[in-house]
Structures are given as structure tokens and as C-alpha cells.
Amino acid sequence: MRWRLIDGHPPGLLEYCRELHQYREVAYVLIRRDLIIRFRQTYFGLAWLLFKPLMLMAVMSFAFGFLAGFDSSHSTPYPLIIFCGVIPWYFFSNAVPDGMNSLLGHMHIIQKTYFPRAILPIAAVAVDAIEFIVAWLLFALGCLWFGYLPGWQIVCFPLFFLQLIVLCVVVGLLLSVINVRFRDIRNLVPFLLTIGFFVTPAGYTSMRIPNQWQLLYALNPLVGIIEGLRWSLLNGLDGFPLISVGFSIATTLAIGLIAMRQFLATDKDLVDLA
């Protein structure tokens, strides 16, 4: 049997990932549990997984298509353009607060047993990701409804899909450790998300942003992801959004690096800090 060393030094990334893998069962149990709790004591139960994105799509196509009358020159059905932006935004705006609150919300477990703490934000994001996947299935039905067929670009869909999940995980990891030390962030994040909705091309396409602002706008990692998703699902829509996709990958990586460093440095001290 191997010796395990317990000391005050932060763990290395590789060693930590190995441990995450070792404790993956905890994540499975947590995900299943969150799903159960989310729909326990509801009349419709799991059907809410379908209802929520369905209602969202209905409201959004009404608001942006009918009321705001943003309908543009695209040959693509306008609701599909909107869904492509609203589905990822909805996921992001749910997953980030869930990830952020996951450590503080599980302090009673953290104080009693050991497991790599990163499992908590990851599991929290994963639960929202399930809803996210269901929403894309509805999107496919929407395509059928409009008689719309995506082009070859759809092969790139999984890449943007994955990037968004990675982005949510790393933002969740970062905010969750900050939240343990500075609970101020809890009050700040909902507000930031409200602003975020307007600087993200969820209800419109980034073509509407004036040229001189495009670079600054692309610093928001969601811009590249959403434009990339539109490109891959809607036959290349306005051409490949090279700049915003590049910026988005760079910012995602940067946030990921900061998040991992912060998390590894704080992981062992969480109980003392809380």
C-alpha cells in the first residue's frame, strides 16, 4: 500500500486531477441528488426539464421577434437565431451562480469528510448542463418545425458546446472560492449577470454592435461562443466570427488558469476560511 502525505502545501494540478478522477462517484451521486431535489415535491417532476426551456423559447421569440421587431434581412428563421443565443445564455446565467454557491452551500459536508472540493462546483454546473442539453434537443425540434437544415458547419457544434461548459466550470470554480472568503460577491453576481445579458448577443446578433466597439465587445467570452454556435448551427450565418472566437478562447483559457491556481491554493484551507 502506498503512503499518503498530509501536509499544508497546496496540491499539484496533476495530483489533484487524479484525485478528482478517483472521487468521481461523489460527483455522480451529487448530480443525481440535485436532480432529485430540484424536482421533488413538484407535480410535473422531470417534465420541468422540458417545460423550462420551452417557456423560455416562447417568451423570447415573442419578445424579440414580435414585440421588438428585430427581424432582419436573414433568410434564416429569426426565432432560431434567437434560440441559439438565449439557450447558451440561460445555461450560463444559471450555472455560474449555482457553481458559485456550491462550496458555501455544502459546508456541512466539507467540514465532515474529505473529497476534492472542486467536485462541488463541477457537479453544480453539470446539473444545469443536463437542462442545457435538453434545450438543444428542443432546438432540433424547432429546426424541424421551420423545415430548416443545418449545414456542414454543424460538425463544429460540439467544440463550442464544450467551450461553454468549460467556461461555466472555471467561472464557477473561481467564484466559489472567492465566495467563501468574500461573501460580497453573492450580491454582486446577479447584478453583473443582468448587465451581462445586454453585452451578450443573446437576444440579438453581434452585427448590431458598431464596428469600433467590436474588439472590446469580443472580450466577453460568451460573444465568441454564441456567434460560433450560430455559425455552426445556422449554415454559417454571417460568416465565421474569427476575431470573437479567438478572443473567446483566449479569455476562457485565462480565466481557467486563474481559477485553477486560486482553487488549488485555497482548497485545503476552505474550512478554516469559511
Partner: peptide, 15 residues
């Protein structure tokens, strides 16, 4: 010992 909190200094080895 249970790895809930880290030691300030020193170490423990467990098998």
C-alpha cells in the same frame, strides 16, 4: 488526519 483542515507545519503519512 481526516484531511478536513491542513496542518500549519509538519506532516502526517498515512497508509
Amino acid at each position: 488526519l481526516s484531511r478536513i483542515i491542513p496542518p500549519t507545519s509538519g506532516h502526517i503519512r498515512v497508509r
